[in-house]
Structure formats: C-alpha cells, structure tokens
C-alpha cells in the first residue's frame, strides 16, 4: 500500500513547528529507515501515518485514505505501529491474549485470528511462551511480544519506533529476521532508528530528517556516501562505510559482504 505525503507541516500546541514541509512517496513493499538527530521530527512524522497526529498543513494518504477522514482505530487496519517502550502497551495476563487483542479489535474472524496469532508467535520465536505473563518476561522478550502483537494485525504497512534500542545481539537478529519476513510478504516496513549498522544491514532506502525537513532521501548506499551532509543531523555512516572510505575504496560499502568484495578488487 502506497503512502503519499504532500507538503506536510505540523506545529505542536506549544508552538513548536516539528515538521516543515515534507513531501514523500513510499511505495508498497518498500523497506525504509528514518534517521536523524533527536528532535528532527522522526516520531512526529510516523505518527501522521496512522492518524495519531493530524497535519497542520498538507496531507497524508494511506492508499486511498486521507488520514484526516479516518479515525485511528480504523487506520489501524492499514498501519501497524510498534511503540518504543513495550511496557506502554502490554496489559494482558498472558502473551497469547495480548497478541489476540489487535486482530480482535480489527474484527477478523476467529479462524483468521488463530492463524495470524500463530504466525506472529512463530516469527518472534514466542511459541513456547503463550501462557506466560508478559511482565514475567525479560525486557527483550517483552519487546518481542509488542512486535508480535502488531504483526498479528496483518497490516500492509508496519512501523517500528527504535526497535533495537536496549536489545541484545540475539534479539536484534530476531528483529532483522522479522523485517526480512515482512519484506518477503510484500509489506511496507518503516523503521525509526539510531542504530546505523542495523539500518545499513536491513534497509534499502534511508531518509535522513533534520529540523523537520528531509535532508537526504535515497538508496542507503547513496545516503551513506554523503557523510558531510549526514553530519548536519548528527548521523555517522556505518563503521564499515567509514573504514572503506578511510581505506580509499572507490565505491561506498554498507556491509561486510560489500566491504570484502571491494577489498578483493
């Protein structure tokens, strides 16, 4: 499902202008990472995608729906949003019930819900924990429950707000696996992240925001190549990209494979 943002401006009630004219198109099935310093407007931008915030000026279209005309509960059938802190959304006494909550709100049939929950549990490796109380799990696993509870809603667009913050290496691998699986299913994945290495390894398109405007937007490889511009929003290219540049490699590299290939030549 396509997302079309046209000249989006947003001012908070406090008078802070968080977004100053953003126009973007995100095609169905794209994997997009949004980077930028704190206060650049990343979260403000994605909260427009499911109607939590309404544009002050401009418009946001999710498929053929203008977010101004649909309530959040309705937009939830098109856009899934995983919040940063799982503790701000988990309330059920066991993992299974928690994950059923979203799809049930969307009014799916019982058979469909069963299937979706099963798939979400398998994807996040939670299948053996359905009976557990989410608060008995470690924070990394609670994050997985939050992820599963949104994936089970089977929305064509999924947003992750800083999924890797505070996660250990196995958990980050699991999250990367989830994103790869969603890509395979043809879903749009939009991720806000400060973890540039994670961004380089899992996303093709990178949008860098700075002070409420799009600073850079393009293929990850092109965006990471422009380190001077990225520095304006306090983003450093991934370690291997910087190392490659210091070594004088001709092309910009993002990951180990590209780095080794470039070295061989």
């Amino acid at each position: 499902m396509k997302i079309q943002i046209d000249n989006l401006r947003f001012t908070y009630p406090t008078g802070l202008e968080a977004l100053r004219g953003i126009s973007l198109t995100i095609e169905a099935g794209e994997q997009v990472a949004i980077v930028g310093q704190n206060g650049a407007g990343k979260t403000t931008l994605v909260r427009h995608f499911n109607g939590l915030l309404q544009p002050t000026v401009g418009s946001v279209l999710i498929g053929d729906w203008d977010t101004k005309k649909y309530p959040v509960a309705k937009l939830a059938s098109r856009v899934g949003y995983v919040f940063q802190n799982p503790d701000e959304q988990l309330f059920s006494k066991d993992v299974g019930t928690e994950i059923r909550f979203g799809p049930r709100n969307l009014g799916y049939s019982k058979e469909k819900i069963d299937g979706l929950v099963k798939r979400a549990l398998a994807l996040t490796e939670l299948s053996d924990k359905t009976e557990t109380n989410p608060y008995d799990l470690s924070p990394t696993w609670r994050k997985m429950v939050a992820l599963a509870s949104v994936i089970a809603m089977d929305t064509p667009i999924v947003i992750f707000d800083e999924p890797t913050t505070g996660q250990d290496a196995p958990s980050i691998t699991r999250i990367a696996h989830v994103i790869a699986e969603l890509r395979r299913e043809g879903k749009t994945v939009i991720t806000i992240t400060h973890d540039i290495d994670f961004c380089a390894e899992n996303f093709e398109r990178v949008i860098a925001l700075s002070e409420g405007q799009v600073l850079l937007d393009g293929a990850a490889i092109d965006v990471f190549g422009q380190d001077e511009i990225l520095a304006q929003t306090y983003v450093e290219p991934p370690q291997l990209t910087r190392l490659g540049k210091r070594l004088g490699l001709k092309e910009t590299v993002r990951n180990q494979e590209e780095f080794l290939n470039a070295l061989k030549r």
């Binding site: 909260r47 499911n50 939590l52 309530p71 959040v72 509960a73 939830a76 059938s77 856009v79 899934g80 949003y81 919040f83 802190n85 701000e88 959304q89 909550f101 979203g102 709100n105 969307l106 509870s149 949104v150 809603m153």
Partner: peptide, 18 residues
Amino acid sequence: AKAQTIISAQRSRGLDTE
C-alpha cells in the same frame, strides 16, 4: 504524558476510544 502515550499505543492497535 505516560497516559497519553499509552492511549496512542492502544489506539494504534485498533482500540476504539472515540
């Protein structure tokens, strides 16, 4: 502020608060 975030998170999961 926390309550506001929780409401946003649950509305994003299709909870009807309106």
